[in-house]
Amino acid sequence: MKRIVNVFVLLSVLLSCSKDSETTDTEYPEIDMAYAEAFPVQCSTIRRGETFVFRALFSDNVALGSFSLDVHHNFDHHTHSTEVNDCGLDPVKTPETPFVYIRSFDIPGGPQTYEARMEIAVPADVDPGDYHFMIRVTDREGWQTMKGLSIKIQ
């Protein structure tokens, strides 16, 4: 019996070595679009031939890394939306010259909060209709948070 106890003592010593002294960042960054100036939000409408300003507030517990914007058509009714409500989709249609916007930006200095403001020009000749507006932000450790919005281009 004593030997059994010894085995368990050995094992518990082994397990207690596991305590990790270093702390690692395991928190995802956040995208805040719930303030008045944030744009676009779920179901926003954007006009062709005009320039709009993307505004969103990013935050992280340690340091932000970079962010990426991706606007693509949703004429086929696929989904990326991370939002619960629906905006009422137009009928499915075949794209001809859909608007495509893909850009990424570093967040200089790795701050804990950052407000992004980007001017985005929408050409006059793109297909109107349902689009997805994808926002992705990383922190310095590589945690990524994604927000997918449904918007309309008129």
Partner: peptide, 16 residues
């Protein structure tokens, strides 16, 4: 495979 803090909008189509 290390997830970095960068995005790439040419080769990576805007992905991490």
């Amino acid at each position: 495979l290390n997830p970095t803090s960068s995005f790439d909008h040419y080769y990576g189509a805007g992905n991490q």
